[in-house]
Design a binder for these strands. Structure first.
Lengths: 144, 144
DNA sequence: AAAAATAGTAAGGTACCCCTGATATTCAGG
DNA sequence: CCTGAATATCAGGGGTACCTTACTATTTTT
């Protein structure tokens, strides 16, 4: 991803990138550090999967990738013990990808990590500043 | 990079990532669209290289990678006609990586693209909001 | 002048992330 | 019940972005 800066004042986009890089890695580190090893791409599953379980195809669509690729991610998560494949009672072709207990615990660890980082943000920016940042980003993403 | 979300309210870090992803790709698209093909990783060079030229080792340090990896990036940029390797007159071991005319033009295109995107940000967030965002990010990066 | 450090190059490897193509099974409509 | 679409999976491939190890050429140190 280009920042293509070299200017004296960093551009806003480069700053966004640096901020994300800084904090994003801390999430993975936090979750992995809490005893839940995983690869960054796995979050594509964790971010979408429903409590009742999700179909592979739906996960793939949601993550904007092929079912084959998603299948590979799921296979890794099965290997790691975070999800299981179960036959879908409503469709013999389909399988439901469901979180195991450990999978749910992993998500909890992720949410805890994120909450901790949000708290750090509040410390750095102040309650007001943090809220402002969120408002601005929301606006930006709505229009972008 | 994990967002590990699934919450109703998106977390701030995920939003930072989305915003960066959105805008970062627009930079590359803009520069490439202006007739300067390149890969995202190349910005690691463009972002650092000095007008007088830079040494490979320095570029590598600045981008936090090995000289070998940086050497590869530089080789690609030489291929694309953006930089040249010249012997460093002050040290027979070293070479200076210097921008060609085309390389400078490419940087100019990048800066133009970024300026355009910054203007868009101002439109979306307002002059005040844009300034606030920059202030908040600056603070965040200083502490992080 | 010999030894040690530094600059760069060369060759090969790894992790990650995603793709295409082909196949088996099941479902849904005519 | 036949056929076309959908679901998942197997097999194989490829690109990006890095790394390690090993080497040569040059400079600096002793």
């Amino acid at each position: 991803m280009a920042s293509t800066d070299r200017q004296r004042r960093a551009n806003t986009i480069a700053m966004l990138g640096q901020a994300y890089s800084l904090l994003g890695f801390k999430i993975v580190d936090g979750v992995v550090g809490a005893g839940y090893p995983q690869k960054p791409s796995h979050s594509a599953v964790f971010a979408q999967i429903k409590r009742e379980g999700s179909r592979l195809t739906d996960l793939a669509k949601g993550a904007n990738m092929t079912p084959q690729s998603m299948g590979e991610l799921v296979a890794e998560l099965v290997e790691l013990g975070y999800v299981e494949r179960r036959p879908d009672p409503t469709d013999g072709r389909a399988k439901l990808i469901v979180l195991t207990e450990r999978g749910n615990a992993c998500i909890d660890a992720g949410e805890t990590t994120i909450r901790g980082l949000e708290d750090q943000l509040t410390e750095i920016l102040g309650k007001r500043g943090h809220a402002q940042l969120r408002t601005l980003l929301t606006k930006l993403l709505a229009e972008g």
